[in-house]
Design a protein around this nucleic acid. Sequence first.
DNA 1: GTGCACCGGTGATGGTGATCACAAGCAATT
DNA 2: AATTGCTTGTGATCACCATCACCGGTGCAC
Lengths: 238, 238
Amino acid sequence: MRAPYGLNILDNCLTCPVREEHIFCNLSVQAGQRLNDIKSTAVYPKGAMLFIEGQQPRGVFVLCAGKAKLSTSSREGKTIITKLSDAGDVLGLNSVISSRPYEVSAEMMEPGQANFIPRESLLQFLKDHGEVALRVAEQLSRNYYTAYEEIRTLGLATSPSEKFAKLLLSWSTKSTQNDGSSPVKLTLTHEEIAEIIGTTRETVSRLFSEFKKKQFLQLKGSTLLIRNRPALEKIVQS
Amino acid sequence: MRAPYGLNILDNCLTCPVREEHIFCNLSVQAGQRLNDIKSTAVYPKGAMLFIEGQQPRGVFVLCAGKAKLSTSSREGKTIITKLSDAGDVLGLNSVISSRPYEVSAEMMEPGQANFIPRESLLQFLKDHGEVALRVAEQLSRNYYTAYEEIRTLGLATSPSEKFAKLLLSWSTKSTQNDGSSPVKLTLTHEEIAEIIGTTRETVSRLFSEFKKKQFLQLKGSTLLIRNRPALEKIVQS
DNA sequence: GTGCACCGGTGATGGTGATCACAAGCAATT
DNA sequence: AATTGCTTGTGATCACCATCACCGGTGCAC
């Protein structure tokens, strides 16, 4: 099956490659069937907004393919990116459960696909399947945990260089190869990196220059290589 | 029944004054009874630590009386207070559900009492009572929401004066009287306020001076009065 | 009482990062 | 090739706030 934006639609959750990972998979047969009935799937282009901060929650989105960024903005236009989501992530869960407006906006960073589960259907489903409710609670507590990571980064790591080093290390540990190297494909603009660590585009640009000059890292095209991990770890400290 | 620290022990959840408020009350008869069996109660002096950041979760604490502050620290000793808890609040829930270390430390700010529910007992209880698991999920999502408030404050409100104004407004709206005034009893030191808004003691002290001089607020003993709310709201903007 | 620990006010100073400004690089489109 | 739009590099400037320093006040214990 072909779809817009050059994607293959994943129309069967049983053959989905991220099947093992997310909380609405590996359910009992009847629960899985029921969930399959209430979900709908859609394909999104780059830049599409799944939902916007402040909207009343319509439902949750299970990201099947593509990447999305979650962000929150102030009236004056300052924006911070709070999370980068990959396939398998469930977006909007907290808002649906607590019946409060979406606390972030979700924007596709590349073309992708997401399953949508309407609010009311999900809540009824959870009432009928208490065992899934506990898994939802677990997911929420994990979300809470990563939110606290964010709080620590924003509140305790004072200097932009510290936050930048922290971010680089988190990227490289995720991508470490068996030969010890950890090449990272850079897909974000300096502007977006700035929005993650809460600083300005110019500062990020200067940090790249500084770290390159100090041989902490190296750039080959859009691939980033950590050359002096201990130095970065020393900057992070906390 | 008398207890240490001049407190009356609350030994019966059915007559507890915060009974209506917290998630483990108003359960079905058998669930309530079961919970009553697995909880234990204890009284704490000012300064007592209910749990410490990084510890493996032993269980949750239901605060029955007194106030507690939740905080997280960096290795270098910088501390931020992320929440002030009152009677009725459930502490440590996220860590127990996600089986991760406590993400904050909880310290009593005044003498108080808390019920303790051991980790294993609670998890088993939730497995047996799916309907309570959904309420736990709701609580977790509310916690998540307030965590995001914190993220917005730390990440988007740039200047200390903005965060300070925001804090004052949040206090005063909670305490608004029917005559429109909103006296706030100040129980925190400048140091603690600084740890809430992520600045230094000296800056808080200067902010108080500045806001007093500009007639935004007034201090009568330890009681704070907002005298120019619109001015504070203008500072906050976001 | 005296000493001690904590809290609150305020001056001086210096570093740091936001802001503004501009140029150059790169990609896509016509 | 030329235009347009987005991204990146880098210099100059400056306000702001953390830091250090010191002193006075207040309660508390002995």
